[in-house]
Every structure is written in structure tokens, then in C-alpha cells.
Design a protein around this nucleic acid. Structure first.
Lengths: 117, 117
DNA sequence: GAACTATATTCCTCAATGGGAATATGAATC
DNA sequence: GATTCATATTCCCATTGAGGAATATAGTTC
């Protein structure tokens, strides 16, 4: 994974928001959708973009795709994700996303690996 | 300055190389040109790009434009530049650029603010 | 003021990106 | 096997970016 590929992923607000949420654990696409309030296509495409550059990994569970940060991130990726966390901590959009994540977590947890149904 | 603007600047190898050199002090365009071995248009354009996003500042000295990192960088910028330094330290291209910088520094210093002439 | 120097800008072309509408895929359920 | 559900993919369009050739600009020097 090249350093530039990491930064390519970071230069879009939607992807930054996804990574911010991802830092707190893996989720399926419809959960990201609900937390960010973004349409399905947009969410799915950006996750695919992140995946194409190795910033996320996918696991298939029934109908769902669970996206999470890599199990073994490179040194560069770890450093940049940590830096991102630091930069983002006080920004409104990102805090709001995390607030929604917290609020929706019980609902998500209610129905197996995914509370979509 | 938005976080995304910083990452936009970081997602191109030439600009990463420029920033890496810049971390060791301001220089004029032709010096960057010589260190990176890139044509004038390319160098000038990427510096303009960095400037448009506030990652560098320019000072005019006679015919030269001296590009340097901002005197008062934002917290985000500082964090990301530090992270970049850390990520780049062992990569060949970047080390090579710094080696050239070191080698050429005396020559640069020889003629006032710029040793081009 | 003419020539030179360092740098920026303008055109051009090509490739990549973002976003949405519509459609495809593939697993689960009835 | 038809339907539903979660997700991906395809097409479309508009914007942006990278790179180079050529030209413009503006300061310096003779």
C-alpha cells in the first residue's frame, strides 16, 4: 500500500466520516448509511473506494457486508488513522456521527450481526 | 483551512516530495526543480496548488519566489506534516531528495538568496 | 529600452472522481 | 420459485486534476 493511496482515501469528506465511524468498530453498509444520512449508492461506492486502496476489509455475513479497518494495518496507515482521530475529535460533523453511532448501537445489536431487518 | 484541503495536497507524489524538502526550510522554485529533477511547469504548478490550499506561503525576492511552510500552521497541518515526516523517513525517493538538498545547499547559499544565476 | 532570468499562466488532452438514477446480483424467506 | 432484502454495478454527466508546449509577466541587468 502506497502512502499516496492512503491520502487519496482521506481527501473526501464522506470517506473521512466513514473512517471516523470505522475507528469504533466494523459495521455493515446500511448502518453507515443510517449514521451518515447518505444514500446507498454513495455509501457503497465510497466503501468500495476505501477497499480498493486497502483501507478497509470486508466480510460477508448472509446478506450483509461488514466493513472494518484492516486487521493488520501498515505502519503508515496506523499513523495516519491516529492522526486523523486527533484532527477530527472536536469537529462537529464527526462528533455528530459518533453520537448517532452511540445512539443506534443498541438497535444495531438487537438483531444478530445487523439490525437492518 | 479544511482538513480535506490538506489531504488533497497530500495525495500526489510530487507534492509529497515538495513538502518533504520544505520541511527543511524554504527554497525558491528553481531549487525545487533541481532537487526533484522535475520540469519548471510541473514544479511551479504544484507549488501553486499547495499555496491555494494554504500549505505553503510565498515571499518575493527580486526575480525569485521563495516558498516555505506557513509561519503559523494550524494544529491539523502541524499534525499531518509531522505524520508525513514519520511515514516518509525511510522511503528511497524522499531520502534521495534530501540527499540532493544537502549536496546542493552550499551551491544554493553561494549567491545570496538563490544560487541559480 | 533591450535582453535575460525566474516564474506563472494559458491551452490542450487525457484520466480520474463524485453523485445520482436505474439496474444487477446474490442470499434469505415465504 | 417468486419475493424481499442488502449491496454492488453500470451509465450518465459535470468537475477536477495532471502533464506538457507555448506564451505571458515582471523584475534585473546591460
Amino acid at each position: 500500500m502506497e502512502l499516496v493511496n492512503i491520502y487519496e482515501c482521506l481527501c473526501d469528506l464522506t470517506r473521512l466520516r466513514l473512517l471516523n465511524v470505522l475507528a469504533h468498530g466494523p459495521l455493515c453498509v446500511c448502518h453507515f448509511q443510517e449514521i451518515l444520512g447518505e444514500p446507498q449508492v454513495k455509501t457503497s461506492k465510497h466503501l468500495a473506494y476505501l477497499r480498493s486502496r486497502g483501507l478497509v476489509e470486508v466480510e460477508r455475513v448472509g446478506n450483509w457486508r461488514i466493513y472494518g479497518l484492516p486487521a493488520k494495518p501498515s505502519r503508515e496507515l496506523r499513523a495516519n488513522l491516529a492522526c486523523l482521530q486527533d484532527c477530527v475529535r472536536e469537529k462537529a460533523v464527526f462528533r455528530r456521527d459518533l453520537a448517532r453511532l452511540k445512539k443506534l448501537s443498541p438497535k444495531f445489536a438487537a438483531t444478530g450481526p445487523c439490525g437492518c431487518s
